[in-house]
């Protein structure tokens, strides 16, 4: 599969608006079974305000790539910059919020205090903590639930609270690792709609890992298709969908065409396997 655009590094365009730039990135884990190539020769530029989805089967390196951006893993080759800094500097500068697969709220803190957690660590003043909490609770539609404990809320509400926590400290990058993977389809649709609205309002740059083709197509401005062994990018698809996306856009031919191309890309990636 020959992919066009920025995927193969030939025409890497780095401009003012580039937020995340990966250049021939390699990452090899040393395991007891020998080395495992989690990422090989990954080239990707993400611009300000992009909504980029990463899709692919298990082991394709999509989560690993997100973790490299977040400086939770360290590449063994190539370069990557976040906001013009190294990922580690970006982490220290608190450049991004990270949303994990599970909400991971602390059960001993109320929702409001959970959202305050990063603010406390980053040394925000008491008043501005309150202010930020109120603002993001409103953003994720959880006003009035601040004093509840996480275990008193449904799974979907918990995940919204964890998104609020990632938004609380004004980082302009949001990294989301299968945030809705554990939720049922109906809740998931609802949260997808809300996430799009939130993205539009805040203009954040979002990196989003998912297993679901419709979710990736519905949400993204760009879809990065990856395949495993070694983890690599096989295709980057620019979405032609309008920014205004009601849920029933998923039944349009345009949507289905993009979904088809994603599926083809995934299948092609698998052909390398055996």
């Amino acid at each position: 599969m020959e992919s066009d655009i920025a995927a193969n590094g030939a025409a890497q365009v780095v401009s003012e608006s580039s937020v995340i730039v990966a250049d021939s990135l390699d990452l090899t884990f040393q395991t007891n079974d020998g080395p495992v190539q989690a990422l090989r020769d990954v080239n990707l530029t993400i611009n300000r305000g992009d909504f980029v989805s990463f899709i692919g089967p298990s082991g394709c390196g999509k989560t690993t790539f997100l973790r490299v951006v977040a400086a939770l893993e360290h590449p063994t080759g190539g370069t990557i910059s976040v906001n013009g800094m190294s990922p580690d500097e970006a982490r220290r500068a608190r450049a991004y919020g990270y949303v994990f697969q599970a909400a991971g709220l602390y059960p001993w803190r109320t929702i409001a205090k959970n959202i305050k957690l990063p603010l406390e660590i980053m040394g925000y003043s008491k008043e501005s903590q309150e202010e930020h909490v109120a603002r993001v609770l409103k953003l994720v539609d959880l006003e009035g639930f601040g004093e509840k404990f996480p275990w008193q809320l449904s799974g979907g509400m918990q995940q919204r609270a964890s998104i609020a926590r990632a938004l609380a400290f004004d980082a302009d990058i949001l990294l989301m690792d299968e945030p809705f993977g554990a939720l049922d389809e109906i809740v998931r649709d609802h949260l997808n709609e809300q996430l799009l609205a939130l993205w539009e309002r805040t203009g954040k740059t979002i990196g989003f890992v998912t297993h679901s083709i419709p979710e990736a197509v519905y949400l993204s401005t760009r879809i990065v298709v990856m395949s495993p062994r070694p983890g690599r990018i096989t295709d980057v698809i620019e979405s032609t969908l309008p920014l205004e996306r009601p849920l029933d856009i998923r039944d349009t031919p345009e949507f289905l065409a993009i979904a088809h191309r994603v599926r083809e890309g995934l299948r092609a990636g698998h052909a390398y396997d055996d």
């Binding site: 884990f29 395991t31 079974d33 495992v36 989690a38 082991g59 989560t63 690993t64």
Partner: peptide
């Protein structure tokens, strides 16, 4: 976390 392969220790060296 699905992407990292966690292998069981095997072989003499690992043991």
């Amino acid at each position: 976390m699905t992407d990292a392969t966690i292998a069981k220790p095997s072989g003499l060296g690992a043991g």
